[in-house]
Write a protein that binds this DNA or RNA. Structure first.
Lengths: 225, 225
DNA sequence: CGGCATCCGGGAAGATACTG
DNA sequence: CAGTATCTTCCCGGATGCCG
């Protein structure tokens, strides 16, 4: 029963500013990265832990408790066969995505940003939603599937927006099978598609013309100074 | 000479995600609130400390060092007469304002947000930039001055945007003299102008019709759930 | 295996006192 | 006024173990 539910009303900003309150809600270490991993759909404890390199189990437990208490996520039991419990953002929790996007766009301009570090599937797909060239994207539409190991994501491009969700990827126009770092290298790092395919770390099926057009939609902002 | 300037390269997220990098840059406690206080112009150490209820001097020193090292702000000496040192955001640092705005807009919908806590001048003016009704604001323009004790801010409304900077407020169409909490109560809390004026905590000079129109431009978003 | 509790070491934050 | 030094408190991270 989690006996120690101390709200610890101390140690907080005594400030009516919305930004300060946001920091009380999601300002603790790892909190926003937990949201990042949940933004495309519910996940289990172990999946979250595997996607967050370096987080410890007890800290993840604390964050999930705090975020649930704040009304940002809720834990739900899957129907009987699985008997597993998953964490899912509430509608208001899903609205936190712009925070992640704006922070990512700004930090991508940092002179110290190292794009060669590991990347999670959520991260690269979130970056697509952030870095998409809306005006060029409006010119076409399509459905795209991503397979990263055993995780699959379904993306629908339409009206300049890329809607992404964790789902199976049957019936997509293009399906990519790769890993997040290779995908980032191809899209942002100027690595040639043919090179990545030859290396065996990148494969795609479906409409290759559409695929190339899609992959050229995303660009990092220029570095500051 | 601050002998121990080691950034302690450990304790960070090993993650290429832009959001994760942003958290490395401004994810420490107080960091974003320091930026909030700098977003309308340079300030001195003591001014920052006074605007950040509860921060201690050594933590503020650490944050300023870290933010300077990251290239988000720089310390500059004022010309000879003052011999004072101020902290000022770099151009890229100023671009962090959308982070503050998006977080504030999202957190304002939190069921737990308490708008009766103390508020800094930067906070209320930042909230105006965030919560402005752009379509209605496009319909007119004007210049507005705010005097909070000895701090003054100059705001220019034009094209739906409210540009704010710390500056003297001569030659404005309307000048408000009040405190941030009273201003928030009038704009967001439904407190009548006449009531606040009668209480002596709110005064304005200039075009009163324009003033009323201006003050009605700003609204908090509805609470979630 | 998933989730949570406990213990421990290290380090960051908070408070106070002190210096130029 | 602008920080620095010191001490205490608390959070974070890792390890371990319990229980369903």
């Amino acid at each position: 029963m989690t006996k120690n539910a101390k709200p610890l009303e101390t140690r907080w900003y005594d400030d009516a500013c919305g930004t300060a309150h946001a920091l009380e809600l999601v300002g603790e270490r790892w909190a926003l990265l937990v949201l990042r991993e949940l933004v495309f759909g519910p996940r289990r404890f172990g999946e979250l832990r595997a996607s967050l390199p370096g987080i410890s189990a007890n800290v993840l437990t604390q964050r999930l408790e705090g975020l649930e208490h704040a009304g940002i996520l809720k834990r739900t039991q899957l129907p009987s066969p699985q008997k597993a419990q998953v964490y899912e953002l509430t509608p208001w929790g899903y609205e936190s995505e712009p925070i992640l996007q704006v922070m990512g766009r700004w930090a991508a301009r940092s002179p110290q940003h190292d794009p060669t570090l590991p990347l999670s599937p959520s991260s690269i797909l979130m970056s697509f939603r952030t870095m998409i060239d809306v005006s060029r994207a409006r010119a076409f539409s399509g459905t795209f599937g991503f397979r990263f190991g055993d995780e699959t994501f379904h993306a629908t491009l339409e009206g300049g927006n890329l809607a992404v969700r964790r789902a199976s990827i049957d019936d997509v126009d293009v399906a990519f099978t790769t890993d997040p770092m290779t995908l980032a290298a191809v899209v942002y790092g100027g690595v040639a598609l043919a090179e990545a395919e030859a290396a065996g770390t990148f494969a795609m099926t479906g409409n290759r013309t559409l695929a190339r057009r899609f992959l050229s939609l995303f660009h990092l902002p220029p570095k500051a100074t």
